[in-house]
Write a protein that binds this DNA or RNA. Structure first.
Lengths: 306, 306
DNA sequence: TTGCCGTTATGCCAGTTGTGCATACCCTCG
DNA sequence: CGAGGGTATGCACAACTGGCATAACGGCAA
């Protein structure tokens, strides 16, 4: 039996078998499959060889599946159909017709921008299904890397990962510091970075908000000194506890000014160079129209907030 | 871009892509796949052409999936794995290592044979999982045809379908008739077919028990007359009602003698030629060892009952 | 900068495979 | 026994695919 064929095209032969069994005839199936009957006949032989058992009862009136043939149909038809639909969905997605948009964001940071941008998006592309994920900057970046997010709204933390993805800077916010209510600085309306020289700084866990400490360090260096991080905590609320108990300070993006936290006062930093960039990251490769639309909407919203 | 390839081997290329993404490198993936790097490189190009979008970010240190690439992995990996396991299962089944055995039987007819046979089977192949289906002869045949049964225990009704499947005659039972208690025949110990000449016969629905009427007709013809079916009912219990009310008779396999039904008396037919064959049918093609074992067990049980 | 080493991409050739065509074979029915 | 339906087979050819050699490209170190 010199009918060997490759193991590769086996799925095609399985498809062919499904058609043959549907039609009950190699001849008619061959017509449907746009190949000749001999070719199809040989495919069936090949499939039987590969599986090691007869699949069809050849009768003078056509063909009929054997038990094994039936079993194959039952096992393979759903897989083949799933394969086809998955393929179709991928092709659509490749053409940018992705209907689902998975957005990662940090509620405290992105709220003022994301909400109006989403409203715009819904107006221009109402059929887009949104999945919003409130997650830490680190989780956002990991999500992008793992392909679980299409787009991430992220602050300064994102610049370290910006080269991995497409990115756009949305706006550049002012910066503030958090100090204890008891601290003399708390009474000031403004503060310059220079005034922080020699103060103890509270750092945050690099895993949770990567790059934040580096950003603070860079800012201080531009003001002529090197910050000393006396403690590193994980999570922003713990930062506030430390601010109160240790009377250290920490540099924060400006939107924290609106926050209230017992025992903590936020003081704006007046240095012009002290800015907190807010950026949006999205997957490389062909972005869906929905992704592009949301990025555009975010940019438009950003200019109004500047 | 003249990289076209066939649409056929697409699944292979998807498999290849899965490996490439796992390895993060075309080179290493090529090693795992036992092909050269250029070949694999071209496969990836082909896949991207077929899908209409980039799947990989080529970087100097290797490759990284794009969003589309990630989506493909998420959609296709389970399908590919399902396909492989299904294929393996089919191959095992083709080798006769089927662990499940679906048996169709008619409780009233097969009980005396099936129970001991199953006991034998359990002793010789304890790991076989059994699925027993009590169903009418017609349902059994349909089940075999649809591949939902591996084996059917069926009476005379099965002979019409015997050519479609493998079959073995298990035993040949004596025949009896059912008559009303009031009928003079009811007092007899035996009866010959000839004595039934001129009597009204009760037939059964051809859909439920195909071939039964033909069997009765053939028997009567061998005794020199043609039975007259005054009524055809569906289901054996209705036959008994008719036997009582219409004082017709009906030919039945011998195992009914053990039954009790108010107003009905069963009288054995003494003709030597009047026999009711009991057969087992199973799927054509390679039967599993379990199937063969059960057939053997049934045959052995049958000889003890003869 | 230059050279080296890693990566992926491309040109070309040969082996293999799957297909179509023509035809053989087999069965059933008239 | 021939006609007409089915499936299988012999054969030649086009096409795809893989291997080899090599290009192109980017990073890194001297």
């Amino acid at each position: 039996m010199p009918v060997v064929h490759t193991l590769g095209g086996m799925m095609d032969r399985i498809r062919a078998l499904l058609t043959v069994i549907e039609e009950g005839s190699v001849n008619r199936a061959a017509v449907r499959l746009r190949i000749t009957q001999p070719a199809l006949s040989r495919q069936m032989q090949a499939l039987e060889n590969e599986l090691g058992g007869k699949l069809l009862e050849r009768e003078t009136s056509g063909v009929k599946p054997t038990g094994l043939g039936h079993a194959l149909v039952k096992a393979m038809r759903p897989l083949v159909e799933g394969y086809d639909t998955a393929l179709a969905e991928l092709r659509r997605q490749a053409r940018g017709e992705r209907s689902e948009l998975r957005v990662g964001y940090l509620l405290s940071a992105a709220q003022s921008m994301l909400t109006p941008a989403l409203a715009k998006l819904r107006k221009s592309q109402p059929e887009v299904k949104l999945k919003l994920h409130d997650m830490s900057p680190r989780e956002q970046i990991d999500g992008l890397r793992a392909g679980e997010l299409d787009l991430a709204l992220i602050g300064q933390e994102g610049v370290t990962a910006a080269s991995e993805f497409h990115s756009a800077k949305l706006c550049s916010l002012r910066v503030c510091i958090a100090v204890s209510d008891n601290d003399p600085i708390a009474a000031q309306k403004n503060i310059t970075l220079k005034e922080l020289k020699g103060r103890d700084f509270i750092g945050v866990d690099e895993d949770q908000v990567p790059g934040r400490n580096r950003w603070a360090t860079a800012l201080c260096k531009s003001a002529g000194f090197k910050p000393r991080f006396v403690v590193v905590v994980d999570g922003i609320t713990n930062v506030f506890s430390q601010v109160v108990s240790e009377s250290g300070v920490t540099l924060l993006p400006g939107y924290f000014e609106k926050l209230q936290h017992p025992g903590v006062t936020f003081v704006p930093v007046s240095d012009e160079k002290a800015r907190w960039d807010f950026i949006v990251l999205w997957q490389k490769g062909l972005a869906s129209t929905a992704t592009r639309a949301l990025v555009e909407a975010l940019k438009q919203v950003a200019v109004t907030l500047r």
